[in-house]
Design a protein around this nucleic acid. Structure first.
Length: 480
RNA sequence: UCCCCCUUAGCUCAGUUGGUUAGAGCGGCUGACUGUUAAUCAGUAGGUCCUUGGUUCGAGUCCAAGAGGGGGAGCCA
């Protein structure tokens, strides 16, 4: 080890170099008995215990070792005399890098509520829970790229600012440099967007799908992984105004190939987390189990977090058509006993989350993929089936989260697509390039969108989506 | 956007049918102790009871509006 070089705590704990002189730097979690610092630098969930000799240490330094302060420790790695840890560091030198006024520092060595921690999002990552979530989140980002790279997919950066309002995936955020109090106006008094920065109306993207299809019809297998913005007034534990979405798009895949890929992908990710985030997941598993105890029996999970991840990895997903799902729901107990708020009477009804939850959590008790939905409840670009009633759409439904993936085979036939655009009154002028893809060397292709934060919810067992992204953006809330 | 719930010390929460000076644990501070594991022990400070208005002899408690937060629904990923 190079003299003067800092060693990260995860490395120390895994190599346990007893007898070596080391430098560690990090943040104090607790300082017990005027002797024992629990030090964490984020490289692992675990802390290293630093033992200081309070009789030799300058009292003015001793006083500044407080919860939250940042310190640099020079000392020797020794076997611990205590029971809670194998090794510890006997400090020879303690430097305070950053004070944390104990009277004002909001984090205490105790359990805080998630609601409180959301209000101090700049500090919450210093807790075990959020440290674990951030690390798992990183591991999943890496695993996404690894999965697609191994399968020969190319990552495509689709635009964040978009000029088309055509996809209809949701309300959009406007992008403009016009003065909101006094925008340039046309003679007829309308806002003159031709004078705006881009010379037209622009918005933040709600999906990179349409753009990534261009790359798909040249590179075959591609994916996006980027920020996505929806200005919906959604106030739920599964919605954000700014979130990250993964959208693979595959040439020559039909809807069944796509469902298989979605299943393989999700299993790969769960498996990667189990293999690479062991101690973080064990911590989150315990945390979730504790949390469950405060809930009524009926709302508790039958499986623990780790068991759920294991279950997804080892069990095949149930794949059924919308029509089959309607049959199951129509004959289900809650439907017959009128327990559903929305009763299923006939084919064509949109499924409510109570129905999806019934299928996933009660009927099949495993992830379910529904496919071939009625065309009038799905988007214009989805491929029409021969029955003329349904489109080749699919949703992957997960327990607790609901829809984690939505995808479809795309309509590759120019005439059919054009007719559908007209039927739905979608402004065609914004879609000329999208239609041209069907004019020049069109190909059957399919894709899906995975909400990254919903994935992280599933992997970490966190119930509120605001706790799996560092800085959540939701209606009325954009602090930090 | 709709429905429901919550807001009391830095944090987590008690606070009886409306009644004198609003409490506890943790945290902070002071001291003791010194191989602790969210250390322990003793002492101590700390309050716009979310805001505004109303009812009442009297409001933390009842009513109304507003603010903030949470849960559910819809929209979806």
């Amino acid at each position: 080890m190079r003299p003067g070089k800092r060693t990260k705590i995860n490395e120390l704990l895994s190599t346990a170099p007893v007898g070596e002189k080391v430098i560690v730097k990090g943040w104090v979690r607790t300082f017990r008995n005027n002797q024992f610092i629990a030090l964490n630098d984020g490289s692992a969930l675990e802390n290293i215990q630093v033992v200081v000799n309070y009789e030799d240490l300058d009292p003015s330094i001793l006083k500044r070792i407080t919860t939250g302060s940042c310190v640099s420790i020079t000392g020797e790695v020794v076997e611990s005399q205590g029971k809670g840890q194998k090794i510890e560091i006997t400090a020879k030198k303690v430097d305070i890098l950053g004070d944390a006024d104990a009277e004002k520092y909001p984090l205490q060595p105790k359990k805080h509520t998630l609601e409180f921690l959301r209000k101090i999002a700049h500090l919450r990552v210093r807790t075990n829970t959020f440290g674990a979530i951030y690390r798992v989140r990183h591991a999943m980002i890496f695993a996404v790229h690894k999965f697609f790279t191994e399968k020969g997919f190319y990552n495509i950066h689709t635009p964040i600012v978009t000029g088309s309002d055509a996809e209809g995936a949701g309300e959009m955020f406007r992008v403009t440099t016009l003065d909101p109090a006094n925008p340039v106006k046309t003679d007829s008094g309308e806002v003159d967007y031709s004078k705006d920065f881009f010379g037209k109306e622009t918005n933040l993207t709600v999906s990179g799908q349409l753009e990534v299809e261009t790359a798909c019809l040249a590179l075959s297998d591609v994916y996006t992984f980027g920020p996505t913005f929806r200005a919906e007034n959604s106030n739920t534990s599964r919605h954000l105004a700014e979130f990250w979405m993964i959208e693979p798009e595959m040439a020559f895949y039909d809807i069944h190939d796509t469902m298989d890929l979605a299943e393989e992908f999700l299993k790969y990710l769960a498996n990667y987390a189990l293999a690479h985030c062991k101690s973080d997941l064990e911590f989150l598993d315990k945390r979730a189990t504790e949390e469950e105890k405060s809930k009524p029996q009926v709302e508790r999970n039958e499986l623990s977090l780790l068991e759920r991840l294991q279950f997804v990895v080892t069990n095949s997903f149930e794949k059924i058509s919308y029509t089959e799902a309607i049959d199951i729901l129509r004959n289900s107990k809650p439907n017959k006993k009128k327990k559903f708020q929305y009763l299923i009477n006939e084919w064509g009804a949109d499924l409510q989350s109570e129905h999806e939850r019934f299928l996933v959590e009660k009927h099949f008790k495993r992830p379910v993929i529904l496919y071939n939905y009625p065309k009038n409840i799905k988007a214009f670009y989805m491929r029409q089936n021969d029955d003329d009633k349904t489109v080749a759409a699919m949703d992957v439904l997960f327990p607790g989260i609901g829809e984690i993936i939505g995808g479809s085979q795309r309509e590759e036939r120019y005439d059919v697509l054009k007719q559908r655009i007209e039927e739905l009154d979608i402004p065609e002028k914004d879609l000329w390039w999208y239609l041209e893809l069907r004019k020049f060397g069109s190909a059957p292709h399919s894709g899906f969108g995975l909400g990254f934060e919903r994935l992280i919810q599933f992997i970490t067992g966190m119930e509120n989506i605001r706790d799996v992204i560092p800085f959540p953006r939701t209606p009325e809330s954009a602090e930090f």
